[in-house]
Design a protein around this nucleic acid. Structure first.
Lengths: 213, 213
DNA sequence: TGTACTACGTCAATTGCGTTGTCCTACGCT
DNA sequence: AGCGTAGGACAACGCAATTGACGTAGTACA
């Protein structure tokens, strides 16, 4: 017996194991032990299914979150949760992160973030702008980092080697700035820049809030 | 008589005119007045073709850029160029934005950005961190916005409609913050948040530079 | 001049995809 | 008992990427 939940869970597992290109109605049907067309009893189209997957990722990211009342800490926590949640399912994140679902869990997240900003004292117009920048920045980094994680292991280490090989060996005469910072670059580019970028965004938001008062 | 250049140019024109979903070997063949399979005489696969398109994009984005000496203005200009360049060709951006090529155009960009930051007075470690956050933020937003543009027209307008339909009709009792800002949300979510996010990042960087002195 | 080779394009076929319409079967309701 | 419906199977359509066999023109070379 199939169900929307079972199909979404199977799809996430399928994509996690076999990569993004495995998410087809036909392979999904095989994984479910059912005919591909059976999926259409529960989802209007593959796009509909994709939105359900996106919604599930949002739900998992928000699960168990509690506001502390400190707007900066709360926003930071939500950002890190979104980023971590999508990175946990890189292939699915690549497909789903840029979709607007308009469903309950997404709405709950929007309401929570807007609430944090407005309660903190941001004027409505400013709260909306910061909300938008915050969410898209989180999703953008999530997609980028997920894409790196979704690469085959060989391509992943090749990307990493570029910083130690190509960049570290550039001539100081033609590329003085890279030459001067090559060791720092090699160390930093292996990690995600999301945390630092998030703190920069929160710094800027805090400064604007102080200036508005 | 076909050629790699002619095919790449035709592909870019095709996508510019008919949208992301027009980039198929069959339609490309039709646009070239040739059999679809003729493309394979010049490119090993469609992925190969897309990489060639991506290279072309990098070249075009950098073309004609000049430093002014104002670090903030220079960084802003580079960010906007990257973002606009990728957004102009969404489907290629989706495939190319997260790859580290280590080729001449990419190296030139890295050197330029690091140079701007170090010349402005950022210490090396800080310059590298800001470089990383700046680049990944620009690429992240580019991917996200490109993905939205690469959607079929139907899905695109559906995403847009969500903000006017679902969100604008939520009850003020259960979702007070969304209800209070629904009109602002609908207006803001139709645009890219990149410019605002970029300005926030530059604000924060400027504050850190001032604090370090 | 004749031969062989290569570059370039066409043609036909294979495989996989999303999606749809039709059929079958089991179950709950009156 | 009869019947509607939910849930699944099956077959088919059209579009996609890709491939290998085939034709054709030009070109190098003996």
């Amino acid at each position: 017996m199939l169900s929307r939940e079972l199909i979404v869970d199977t799809a996430l597992r399928l994509v996690g194991q076999q990569g993004a290109e495995a998410l087809t109605v036909r392979r999904l049907g095989t994984a479910l032990g059912a005919d591909p067309s059976a999926v259409y009893r529960y989802f209007h189209s593959t796009d509909d299914l994709l939105l359900a997957i996106a919604e599930e990722l949002i739900a998992r990211a928000q699960d168990g979150w509690q506001a502390t009342g400190n707007w900066r800490a709360d926003l930071r926590e939500i950002g890190l949760r979104i980023h971590a949640g999508y990175r946990a399912h890189p292939q699915a994140a690549l497909l789903a992160a840029h979709r607007t679902t308009g469903r309950t869990h997404e709405i709950a997240a929007v309401e929570a973030i807007l609430g944090i900003l407005r309660t903190a004292g941001f004027p409505d117009r400013e709260a909306v702008r910061i909300y938008h920048a915050f969410v898209d920045q989180s999703l953008g980094f999530a997609v980028l980092d997920a894409a790196a994680l979704a690469l085959p292991a060989a391509a992943q280490s090749a990307d990493q080697r570029v910083w130690h090989a190509s960049y570290a060996r550039l001539d100081a005469g033609t590329h003085p700035h890279i030459a001067a910072t090559a060791h720092l670059l090699a160390a930093d580019m292996g990690r995600s820049a999301y945390q630092f970028a998030l703190d920069l965004l929160l710094d800027a938001a805090e400064a604007r809030l102080a200036a508005a008062r």
